[in-house]
Design a protein around this nucleic acid. Structure first.
Length: 382
RNA sequence: GGUGGGAUGGCCGAGUGGUCAAAGGCAGCAGACUGUAAAUCUGCCGACACCGUCUACGAAGGUUCGAAUCCUUCUCCCACCA
């Protein structure tokens, strides 16, 4: 099935109890069944994983990052390489983040105004100007299937004024993003642009943000500015508020969320797409996702544990190796430890998406959700 | 046989009279990580009755109010000379 528009979204089933959706996002690089977890490949690579391994894992779409690729190797170079798909040899859908998150995560290096962000490169200190127009031009050069609006992500906690300012600016920038994207679209006619709702943990600001963006008729809507340190309950409350107002016919993307329990609760609140660095970062740091919660493979208790990480997991690491071996590899500083732990964590989350989709299609999502939480030990709230 | 250098907490290695239970690194143990400045960061790391006491800087003895630090002897290691 090929998309006539840059992107189409088909809803296959909706859970009558929760509103959880099973759907398909159809792009020119392939179809993405939802709910979906998207591995993050900031620098045109999912750290420690080769593209064929991501295919083996079942990843249907990956992320990359406009800011990081702009600094190195540069959007123009990627365009000269035949676009990001060809450059990194991933012939499936790609979503690029706009650089908006770096305005937040690298705030100490930059100065923000309505015009955009002037910031110092974290690589060499050189000065760069980021704006909606810059972000759109760069993302069109990259040629991703889904581009994101340049937005402002407020920190948590922040004052109401600060959150309100971020909403106002995000709306302003969404309009400029859309204009710039429309002007340049012939460079990447397959590219869809998603809007991003901000508003921190304030329900009225979230509703305002959504109300201001919906008329722009983006083909998909993201919820940004969550999972930045707020308690999970706050995140769920905001999703509850947005669920009824975001267009039901368009995919919804909860940005930056990757804790398994957050994924399940997000889906229960109508979210279709997630991305997170957690499986790869935690994988490199020796923390593994299991149905019981996080497990740290470095711990002494696994020294002589010759069972797999997760007996229910079908990933290469769990099919093949023992906890004792992974612990040994990690302690020995071997690259394979990071690869296998990332491999497992990615498969765990991709499979979690697959399982939720199957449950929604079968009409058993409420049971799935209940059974998931009965086993999963969430980390203590900080 | 002679001369010189050295022996410090599991390992490496600072420290040359008090502010030393002894820097730093490694190893070890535990914790964190949510649109990636992260193969990173944080804490603990002599014993215990743990805001205190005890045992500790090769061994034994000595000087001193006070020694890992100064003196004597011994043991072992390294370098060079014979």
């Amino acid at each position: 099935m090929s998309a006539k528009l840059p992107l189409e979204f088909v809803v296959d089933a909706v859970c009558p109890v929760t509103g959880a959706r099973a759907g398909r996002i159809i792009t020119q690089h392939g179809e993405i069944p939802t709910p979906v977890f998207m591995p993050v490949g900031t620098q045109a690579t999912v750290k420690a994983m080769a593209p064929f391994e991501l295919e083996e894992i079942g990843a249907k779409i990956i992320l990359s990052n406009t800011y990081h690729l702009h600094l190195r190797p540069g959007g123009e170079l990627v365009r000269a390489a035949g676009g990001l798909h060809n450059f990194m040899r991933w012939d499936h859908p790609i979503l690029t983040d706009s650089g908006g998150f770096q305005v937040f995560s690298l705030a100490s290096l930059g100065r923000i105004s309505d015009e955009g962000v002037v910031c110092k490169s974290h690589l060499d200190g050189s000065t760069h100007v980021m704006s909606p127009e810059w972000s759109m031009e760069t993302q069109l050069h990259l040629g991703s299937d889904i581009a994101m609006c340049f937005d402002q992500c407020a920190p948590y906690p922040c004052s109401r004024e600060e959150a309100e300012e971020a909403v106002r600016r995000t709306t302003l920038w969404a309009g400029r993003s859309l204009d710039a994207h429309s002007r340049g679209i012939e460079e990447a006619p397959h590219q869809a642009l998603f809007g991003i709702v901000q508003g921190s943990v304030h329900e009225d600001l979230r509703l305002r943000s959504a109300a201001e963006l919906i008329p722009l008729d983006f083909p998909g809507y993201a919820v940004g500015g969550l999972s930045v340190g707020e308690p999970a309950e706050e995140m769920y409350r905001i999703l509850d508020v947005l669920n009824p107002v975001l267009p039901a016919t368009k995919p919804r993307y909860l940005m930056g969320v990757g804790r398994p329990d957050n994924l399940v609760e997000g889906v229960a609140r109508g979210v279709d797409m997630f991305d997170c660095v957690l499986p790869t970062r935690n994988g490199r740091n020796g923390t593994l996702l299991t149905p019981e919660g996080a497990m740290n493979i470095k711990k002494k208790q696994y020294e002589r544990d010759f069972s797999p990480v997760d007996t229910e997991c079908d990933c290469y690491a769990c099919r093949t190796f023992t906890r004792a071996y992974l612990r040994h590899l990690y302690r020995a500083g071997e690259i394979l430890a990071m690869r296998l732990c990332s491999w497992h964590n990615l498969r765990y989350l991709v499979r979690l998406g697959e399982r939720m989709r199957a449950a929604i299609l079968e009409g058993t999502f409420p049971e799935f959700r209940r059974e998931f939480h009965a086993r999963f030990r969430a980390p203590e709230a900080s």
